[in-house]
């Protein structure tokens, strides 16, 4: 399948990419291309101009400083899986990237592309939301940071302005006692999560984070379950009630049969059990 014709540009700086975005024509940024190209091949997208951002040095690299890991937007899933800094400081991100698609997809797809595409069923939004990450965004008005909790607005819609691009994701380091799990139920055909639960427990159990993707219109936090677990501790007797709270409060739509809430309950429970096992 051929895409519609387009003009092709390679940006070498963030400003250059931003300039192309201000052209007014239908312009699309190209990172790994593993969401954009399939859409273009099906002619669901037909941008007049495609700007390859893979050669922009500022979008590459992973650094850790002052309790934050900064992951460049062009960091590919395979690099997120293996990067020693991410594995040490924010292992939940690596655990999540490890189960995206397949080997070939992980070799091309990027963290920035996945987050900006904002597919309801993407895996990484759950991890960045559970980790309270900040999106570092650059545009005509300079650089600003958007918390993950405000970034995912609707299916395929983010808080990114039309002329902005994501430069990096800032992930606060997890505490040294943190235990984390990413558990997904892959769709049997697509491999995308029908539901994906990202969770971690740390600071002696005082902090519990649960973020759920795939099943709602956007990724969401199970705040009631988190609060319950922080108050009662993560143990075999608290997990059932936490899973029930997560299911009751889940913002799922079109759930006449109750299947989605049932999945929330079962997967939150399993993810918490797995996390509790890893806890000493």
């Amino acid at each position: 399948m051929l895409t519609a014709p387009f003009e092709f540009r390679r940006a070498s700086t963030v400003n250059e990419a931003a300039d192309w975005l201000q052209q007014g024509t239908e312009v699309k940024l190209l990172a790994g291309g593993h969401s954009l190209l399939p859409l273009m091949k099906l002619r669901l997208a037909a941008p007049a101009m495609v700007v390859d951002i893979s050669g922009i040095p500022e979008l590459h690299g992973v650094i850790a400083h002052d309790g934050v890991v900064t992951v460049g937007a062009m960091t590919r899933h395979v690099e997120v899986v293996k990067n020693p800094l991410i594995l040490a400081e924010a292992p939940l991100l690596s655990q999540t990237a490890a189960v995206i698609g397949d080997v070939q997809v992980r070799n091309r797809g990027t963290i920035g592309g996945s987050l900006c595409h904002a597919d309801t069923a993407a895996d990484l939004p759950a991890a960045v939301l559970a980790l309270d990450a900040q999106m570092v965004v650059s545009g005509p008005d300079g650089v600003r940071k958007i918390p993950a909790s405000e970034f995912f607005v609707a299916p395929f819609v983010t808080a990114l302005g039309p002329q902005e691009l994501l430069v990096a994701v800032e992930v606060p380091s997890m505490p040294s006692d943190a235990v984390s799990t990413y558990l997904k139920r892959p769709h049997p055909a697509s491999g995308y999560p029908v539901i994906g639960v990202a969770c971690w427990v740390g600071y002696g159990g005082a902090t519990v984070r649960l973020a759920i993707t795939g099943i709602g219109p956007t990724v969401f936090r199970a705040a009631e379950a988190e609060a319950y677990l922080a108050a009662h501790g993560l143990n075999s007797s608290s997990i059932g009630e936490a899973a029930r709270l997560a299911a009751v409060h889940a913002p799922v739509e079109d759930d006449i049969t109750g299947y989605k809430r049932q999945l929330v309950s079962v997967y939150v429970s399993r993810a918490l059990q797995h996390t509790a096992k890893g806890k000493n």
Binding site: F8, L30, G33, L37, D52, V103, N107, R108
Partner: peptide
């Protein structure tokens, strides 16, 4: 050196 699906990569990439 890395396995990729050549139907999802532009030659220009």
């Amino acid at each position: 050196g890395e396995a990729v699906k050549a139907c999802t990569v532009l030659a220009v990439q």
